[in-house]
Amino acid sequence: MTIPVQAAASSSRLRPRTLKDRFLANGSVGSIALFFLFVVALFSLTTEDFLSLDNVLNVLRQSAPLLIVATAMTLVITTGGIDLSVGSVLALTSALCAILIHAGLPWALVMVLMLLVGALVGAIQGFFVAYEGIPSFIVTLAGLSVIRGLALLMTGGYSVPIPSDIAFVGLGRAWILGMPLPALIAAAVLLVGFVTFNETPFGRYVTGIGANAEAVRRAGVNTRGVTLLVYVLSGSLAALAGLVLAARLGSGSSNAGQGFELDVIAAVVLGGTSLFGGRGTMVGTILGALTVAAIGNGLILAHLSPFLTPIVTGSIILVAIWMNFRIFRGAGRKR
């Protein structure tokens, strides 16, 4: 990627960064940070327990699957793709995990198998996207339906209980140093995702593919392999989220994760990752995910109708897409 880097360096020397350039580089993170503070202030004033320690820890524990999957979704969307199947993968691994544990398999082995199942699903979808050239929207939309159907077929639509006396349930219920274990798992995943995305060649390749895949390919990068790996990571982390959810609820259900993919996409796009690819931010993703979780929790504490949550989430997605198109896409055309 020598040529693009040199070009960017030359451009920066020829033209000093203006205030508008700085806004385009960091404005999305700043705006979601302000919006997050607004949401927190709003619900802290309109509800009694929103900022209580118990509720804050509960939000962190419940939002762990969202934070985990949003890490991978940031990579996917930065490449210019999308993964609509993450909710179905979560449901499949949650249900299959409960079935295998109920059948007597060691829970540690089951966890490894579920991560492999998620990776396999991601590899299959990534193959069609990267090597067959089928749009990721079509591939993962089909995956959403097929994978959810497999989960329903295996469970018959019923929840499968997980024994509460095995160590596996600690994955979703344990506490370490006063913090819920799911939140610590999510923090570890986000830290690895942040370092990978910002400090490694792989992260730069992901961004380059979204910005100009042909230029990256001509620089000698295996763009197909990178794209495939991004979807493998997405499937694997969706499977991890399914394990955490199953452990917390003490059961696996084929109905888990309904609409989950919308929450993940809302979190990532709201955080400033461009739907057109080429620009992503892990910090923004964290703030976006916490904002989505805070809105859902705040609406419940405010005793409003639960049907308002998808309405608000959908509105957030629409506004985020509009901002992406009007501000960042327009700026890219001018440059």
Rank of each mutant, 00 (worst) to 15 (best):
M73Q: 13
V86K: 02
G81C: 14
A72I: 01
S85M: 10
A72G: 04
G81K: 01
A72M: 01
L84M: 13
S88L: 10
A95M: 13
V76C: 02
A98M: 08
L75C: 08
I82Q: 08
M73A: 03
I82R: 05
C97Y: 00
I99T: 09
D83S: 07
S85E: 05
L84N: 02
L96G: 00
G80A: 04
G80C: 10
T71L: 07
T79D: 00
S94I: 05
V89A: 07
A95E: 09
S88D: 11
S85D: 09
S85L: 07
L100G: 04
L84Q: 02
A98D: 09
L100W: 14
S94N: 05
I77V: 15
I82T: 13
I77N: 06
I77T: 10
S88K: 10
I77Q: 08
I99W: 00
I82P: 08
I77M: 10
V86D: 04
L96C: 00
T79F: 02
T79M: 06
M73D: 01
V89W: 04
L92M: 11
I99D: 03
I82F: 09
L92T: 12
S85R: 08
G81T: 05
L90Q: 10
S85C: 11
S85F: 10
T71Q: 07
A72W: 01
I99L: 15
I77L: 08
T74R: 06
T78R: 04
L75Y: 14
T78S: 14
L100E: 14
T78Q: 04
C97V: 04
T74S: 12
S85W: 09
V89D: 09
G80N: 07
A95W: 11
M73N: 01
G81V: 05
S85N: 11
G87H: 12
L96E: 12
T93D: 04
L92C: 05
S94H: 05
S85P: 11
A95P: 09
V76K: 02
L90C: 08
L75E: 02
A91S: 13
S94A: 14
S88A: 15
T71V: 15
A95L: 06
D83K: 08
A98S: 12
I82K: 07
C97S: 15
L75N: 03
L92N: 06
V89L: 11
I77K: 09
G87T: 13
I99Q: 14
T93K: 06
G87A: 10
A95H: 12
G80M: 10
T79R: 03
V89I: 15
L92I: 07
A91N: 02
L96A: 14
C97H: 00
T93F: 05
T79L: 06
L90R: 07
I82H: 10
D83A: 10
L92D: 04
A95S: 15
D83R: 09
I99G: 00
L96S: 14
V89N: 08
I77A: 05
L84V: 05
T71Y: 13
A91L: 01
